[in-house]
């Protein structure tokens, strides 16, 4: 049962990702991206990472993609047709991307594979477990990341502000 869900989710993920790349208008890219993110959230649920699945939906699909949409609309990009690179560069891009995939596959193939011992029930992805980790071992990075976010807020305000 689970593997069929995996297949379905994977197909949706890859197709939507491809659409992000090849869509004519940035608007369609953004929408495809949202679909892609939801399918990844599905993967997280499948992997028993329920907490991350929720956070992923809220942060990526909810916040980041809205931000993208917002900018696309703000700049009114839909009117001009998107030009793509010259032919040579496109071929080069395709070749190097393909090469990268091949090389990755090759290295995955040659690397040693271990076997995982899987328990019947897994609860490491639950809020309780991740929260404990976050507030014990990783409390300092956690606090520092809040500073990072603060500086990102200030930075984006300063950058996007109209120069008077």
């Amino acid at each position: 049962m689970a593997q069929y869900i995996f297949y379905a989710l994977s197909i949706v993920t890859i197709l939507s990702a491809l659409y992000v790349v090849f869509a004519k208008s940035p608007m369609y890219s953004v929408i495809a991206m949202i679909v892609c993110f939801f399918s990844i959230a599905g993967h997280y649920v499948l992997l028993n990472a329920q907490f991350l699945a929720i956070v992923h939906v809220i942060v990526y699909a909810g916040a980041i993609m809205v931000l993208f949409l917002f900018v696309v609309m703000l700049l009114n990009l839909n009117q001009e047709p998107d030009k793509s690179h010259g032919k040579l560069l496109r071929v080069a891009a395709a070749i190097s991307g393909g090469m990268l995939f091949l090389v990755l596959l090759l290295s995955l193939n040659t690397s040693e594979t271990g076997t995982f011992i899987l328990p019947e029930k897994s609860d490491i992805g639950l809020v309780e477990h991740v929260g404990k980790k976050l507030f014990n071992e990783y409390v300092l990075p956690f606090e520092i990341s809040s500073v990072l976010l603060l500086s990102a807020i200030i930075g984006s305000v300063v950058l996007a502000k109209k120069e008077s």
């Binding site: 560069l89 990268l100 090389v103 090759l106 290295s107």
Partner: peptide, 19 residues
């Protein structure tokens, strides 16, 4: 784009060398 292309090529070469 050219820089990025060079970067990806570099990564590929590194992988190949490693392999």
């Amino acid at each position: 784009t050219f820089y990025l292309l060079a970067m990806v090529c570099g990564i590929v070469v590194l992988f190949v060398i490693r392999l």
